[in-house]
Amino acid sequence: MKGFIDLHLRPNLEERVEIERIIKRAAELGYRAVGVSLPQEKLQERAREIRKICSDLDIDFISRIDLEPRNSLELLRSLRFLRRRVEVIAVKCLSKSVARQAAKDRRVDILSFSPIDLRRRFFDSAEAELASKTQVSLEFDMAPLLYLHGNQRINLLWKMRIETIIARKFDVPIVLSSGVSEAWLLRKPEDYASLGYLFGLDLENAKKAISENPKKIVERNRRKLSPNYVAPGIYVIRRGKDCPK
């Protein structure tokens, strides 16, 4: 898998035309793979439908689920149930206890926070330290930077700038995603990389945040989801007739 990846598209899944429009737009803008946020109910059915659209448009599909647990227990329960079913698990942290639990759990891939309620952005040094040990990434959705104005955007940029400094200090991978629900809000990957300037992310790291960092997450999880995966470091190389006698 090469090129740019948008890990977070949020089309209205009830309307097939809307899904097609947004994925087609992503392909036109130069993305090689897209992650679409799926609902927990009808997960496999929706994934199959979107995978078909993506293969018709020659773009790689990444299944993703966004969890919004109310407490740590709910998060653990969801992770146990969903980890073997989707390629990317993102946790929207609505409380500090959930944020801490998500950061220290290896089954979580992405931490995301509210773009509007800034008191609920719990990405501080303690959170970053936990996340750096488990390779959990911090996700920034770019869409709010486009549709928010005035004080809301000023405060969001300020928070993102602080979080970028903390993430870089503790070596937490940053993922830039669009987070769009409508096709016209989608921008080119290079445009998103340029927006990184607004919160202190240099161009090189911003490009990594749209290409290499999401790619690492997806490849790691696809390896784990493959039938050849046994345990960390143990893979089936040959089976059945492939085995030498």
Partner: peptide, 23 residues
């Protein structure tokens, strides 16, 4: 240049019509 490149994608509307502007 970085300022201009960051400002251009932030344009979402011109008048009442939605637009997308790419560098």
């Amino acid at each position: 240049l970085p300022m201009i490149k960051a400002s251009i994608p932030c344009i979402t509307h011109i008048g009442a019509s939605p637009v997308t502007i790419h560098v």
